[in-house]
C-alpha cells in the first residue's frame, strides 16, 4: 500500500535535504492589482459595479449586469466560514512549518466569497458558520495577505 498516493493529490514531499521552495507569491493581473494594493494598505477592497453589485474574484465587468463602470470599495472585512479544510501533509515546503493549517472559504457580509487561511484558531475549533474578520499579514516581496481570524 505504500505505493498508493493520493490521487489527484500529489506524492509525499521528500523530507530533509532539499532547500525550501520560494513562497508562492500571488501573480496579480491588471484586474486584481488594486486588490493587492489595498491589502498592502491594510484594507480589504473589492470591486463594486455602478449598480451596486459586489464581485470577487476581480473581473473586467460585473457578472450580474455586465456593467464595466464601478469602484474598488472598502468592505467591513467581516464574514463567516462557509467551508474549510485542514492540511495534514506538505504540498509546498513554504507551508511545512504551518501544518496543520486551515484553509477556508469565507463569505463576506457584503456577499462575495474569498478563499483564505485562518489564523488564531486551532483546526479542531473551526466550525462552519463561524464569524471571522480580516487580519493582514505581510509575507515579503511587498505582498500582504488578507487572512481571517475569529471575530471579536
Amino acid at each position: 500500500m505504500t505505493e498508493a498516493t493520493a490521487g489527484s493529490a500529489t506524492p509525499r514531499a521528500p523530507s530533509g535535504t532539499k532547500p525550501p521552495r520560494p513562497f508562492p507569491f500571488p501573480k496579480p493581473t491588471r484586474d486584481s492589482q488594486p486588490f493587492w494594493d489595498a491589502c498592502r494598505a491594510g484594507e480589504l477592497r473589492l470591486q463594486r459595479c455602478a449598480n451596486g453589485h459586489w464581485r470577487f474574484p476581480p473581473a473586467p465587468l460585473c457578472p450580474e449586469c455586465w456593467t464595466r463602470e464601478g469602484t474598488w470599495e472598502r468592505t467591513r472585512g467581516r464574514g463567516r466560514v462557509i467551508a474549510y479544510v485542514t492540511f495534514r501533509r506538505v504540498y509546498h515546503s513554504a507551508f511545512a512549518p504551518l501544518i496543520p493549517y486551515t484553509v477556508a472559504v469565507v463569505e463576506l457580509e457584503e456577499g462575495p466569497r474569498l478563499t483564505t487561511r485562518l489564523v488564531g484558531v486551532g483546526p479542531d475549533e473551526v466550525k462552519g458558520g463561524m464569524p471571522v474578520e480580516v487580519t493582514f499579514e505581510p509575507v515579503g516581496n511587498d505582498v500582504t495577505l488578507p487572512l481571517f481570524k475569529p471575530a471579536k
Partner: peptide
Amino acid sequence: HGEFEHEFGLFGAAATHALGARR
C-alpha cells in the same frame, strides 16, 4: 491560477473537493 489559491496554502484537487466534503 496565479493568485487566490497557493499563497493561502491551498494546493491540489483533494483540498478543493475536501471543502465540499466538509460542508
